[in-house]
């Protein structure tokens, strides 16, 4: 007789696949937000599993700030090709050119905040009514209170004090005209779970997650990659270091860590021993105590 026992990773996988199928069933036109980061890589694998042997019943959407790591874009295009998926790219540059947003100025200028407008415009243009994201509750304190099915009003905004309760495995995707949902199948995963799953499934990931030598500068305690989108200040020096990235975002706000990890096993050991959260390297979260909540209310990922 079997023990009818699942390991915690299989539990999380079953839960995420269930949520992905609910989205396909409950919404008219869902889309999967894809950044090329490890969480969205796990998401695409889970989506593949959820609808096998059919293809994904929704396209992927990448909000491109124009400040990406080139390695991420290469990876993205190869993956889309391999899966036979449909990819839509929304460019922040277009939002700037159309005067929808104004580029930030100053030393720490970033296009991170501008993505919100580009994202909401893309959702509206394509009439997407559910956007699947790879955000996890363990990432950040405002995200700890996020639902699997997160309701957004017709302005794309999140109201954290008026969220729908979620019980058992019943998800309420009912909504009014013009409203949409953000859905987070990885809600219960931790950074460690994501890495273990990538190892278990033997998934390819962009090379910048592994150690490499790169020019970096130290700013506000974060190591930032030297690139054309950052202006090096007179008191800053460009150094060459062996580094890797724990998250993949904009080059302007994603901090690196010094590391020699060059395999998934190395990364897992490093994550296990880490004393800083992965978002500890993100300059975009350091803007204020409630930076994430404030951006989420406006419609950020």
């Amino acid at each position: 007789m079997s023990s009818y026992r699942l390991t915690h990773l299989k539990h999380l996988e079953a839960e995420a696949i269930y949520v992905l199928r609910e989205v396909a069933a409950q919404f008219q036109k869902p889309v999967l937000l894809f950044s090329g980061g490890k969480d969205s890589i796990v998401m695409t694998r889970l989506a593949q599993k959820a609808f096998h042997p059919a293809k994904l019943p929704f396209p992927l959407l990448h909000v491109d700030t124009g400040h990406n790591f080139p390695e991420t874009i290469e990876y993205r295009d190869a993956l889309v090709d391999k899966m036979g998926a449909t990819l839509i790219v929304a460019h922040v540059q277009d939002s700037i050119d159309q005067g929808r947003v104004v580029e930030e100025s100053g030393v720490n200028a970033s296009r991170n905040g501008l993505q919100t407008t580009t994202l909401l415009d893309a959702l509206e243009l394509h009439k997407f009514d559910a956007a699947l994201g790879g955000a996890r509750r363990d990432e950040e304190k405002a995200r700890a209170k996020e639902r699997f099915f997160s309701h957004r009003n017709e302005f794309g905004q999140w109201d954290p004090k008026n969220q729908r309760p979620e019980l058992w495995n019943i998800f309420n995707g009912h909504k009014g005209f013009g409203e949409h949902f953000r859905v987070f199948p990885l809600s219960n995963w931790t950074e460690m779970d994501v890495w273990q799953y990538i190892a278990l499934e033997n998934l390819d990931i962009p090379s910048i997650y592994f150690t490499h030598e790169r020019e970096v500068i130290l700013r506000n305690g974060s190591l930032l990659a030297n690139c054309p989108y950052i202006s090096v200040q007179s008191n800053e020096t460009v150094m060459r270091r062996m580094i890797r990235f724990r998250t993949v975002g904009d080059m302007t706000c994603t901090g690196a860590i010094e590391s020699t990890a060059n395999s998934l096993e190395d990364i897992i050991s490093e994550v296990a021993a880490a004393r800083m959260t992965e978002r500890g390297t993100r300059a975009d979260d350091k803007r204020s105590e409630t930076a994430m909540e404030d951006r989420k209310k406006q419609g950020y990922f």
Binding site: K141, A144, K145, T290, D294
Partner: peptide, 28 residues
């Protein structure tokens, strides 16, 4: 650590269900 939302921090209360994660070598 558990009160993440602005209103909760300002009023020193917990409004919502917050989910926390930890693991030991045996269980998550």
């Amino acid at each position: 650590l558990t009160d993440g939302l602005r209103a909760e921090r300002e009023q020193g209360i917990t409004i919502d269900v917050a989910y926390r994660y930890f693991a030991t070598p045996k269980r998550k």
